[in-house]
Amino acid sequence: MKEKYIIVRTAGELYGIHISCVENIVKPQNITRMPLVPDYFKGLVNLRGEVLAVMSLRSRLALQGEDDCSKARIAVLKFEDQSRLGLLVDEVIGVSEVEGDEIEDISKDSEFIKGIGKTGTGIFAVLDIDRITDVSTQDAVSEG
């Protein structure tokens, strides 16, 4: 059974997001900074008249460097409860089809990586979107 992944690049590495999570891919424009929230929240953008919170994949994975803006895209993730979250990546490479059993399970080693998959161009890390978007454990920032 083949599974489709959106392959993205951030901080020089390739990551795969299962296609069922991604509603849309948009160019980042005018991100409004959001104070008093964890650093990995890049800010808010206007997504066709609705406000979308954008998370930087680089910051979320605690990778070094600044977000590279030239080819940056926001992957709009949509969840079962109709909520949305934007995931800012350095570049979107394309869509890859991978056999389910070709994904190597390494979930025990990393907090946000589910496994490793192979494409024609190389290997990519499959992102655990549920864990990435689980911000309930974020450092509580008290008001004032």
Binding site: M34, L36, V37, G49, V51, A53, L85, T133, V141
Partner: peptide, 17 residues
Amino acid sequence: SLGKYVDAGKLIIGATI
């Protein structure tokens, strides 16, 4: 609404376009 992912406390009650 800001959605359920960001919560900046009571100081920020929402956003507007």
